[in-house]
Amino acid sequence: MLKIIVPIKQVPETGNVKMDPETGTMVRDGVVSIVNPLDLYSIETALMLKEKYGAVVTVLTMGPLNAVKALKEAISMGCDEGYILSDRAFAGADTWATAYVLMNAIQHIGDFDLILAGERATDGDTGQVGPNLAAGLDIPLATYVRKVNELDPEQRTITVERSVEEGIETLRLPLPCLLTVVKEISYPRLPTLRGKKRAKTVDIPVLTAEDLNLKREYLGLKGSPTRVVSTKSPKVTRNGQMRTIKEDKDVSTAVDDLINFLEERKLI
């Protein structure tokens, strides 16, 4: 049986992110947390492979204890088990420090054949953790995977299509390996009633820095090579020129003005 690991992230629902205009930081009160929308595609890919070849699908997340909700959602979609990596020392981790925890947790959990990560998380929006993990674990990597063509359980290889700006390449990777997948790969299924029931009762182990035997100096904010030194809210309005079309004759004046404007800016 294949063993597939899907790292997922809980993110704030960006539709209602509010910024504090004074401090320029995110207002976290009342923000709803969801599974990173792009991780639904890696979950779906894992479940499709499970249906086709048979697999145990393990989801894991590093985050606060309430991120267990994200794991339960994945389980209600059909994933088999979950682990939450939670420790105060993990707080403030950048992608390097996140990948450090994830890779150690994956090694701790045991053997695996495939890791499926999302293209990027909609909050940090870096898309770095997947490639970081593959490098850290020294397993082959294919990013921006849009299609799994074939998995050969005998040869232990997987053939995938990967998008680049100029077109599509077909790659063959040996197992174990890591893929980051893009939206085109599938359409995520909804949780099922049976899945929801299972999610309620399933036990989700918590793993801490101590459980994983991690080096303190590599954890969280302290262990992160990058530091946010300042934030600012970008100018919200450009105070552009406005024209209003009230009657038919305004159309040509407005368009005249627009053409002049585009000429001035050397855009036409």
Binding site: A134, A135, T143
Partner: peptide
């Protein structure tokens, strides 16, 4: 897509920020 693959791969191994 290639730059966003190579850089995090190398940054992890170099133990540096990206």
């Amino acid at each position: 897509n290639n730059g966003r693959t190579l850089m995090p791969h190398a940054a992890m191994r170099l133990h540096t920020g990206l």
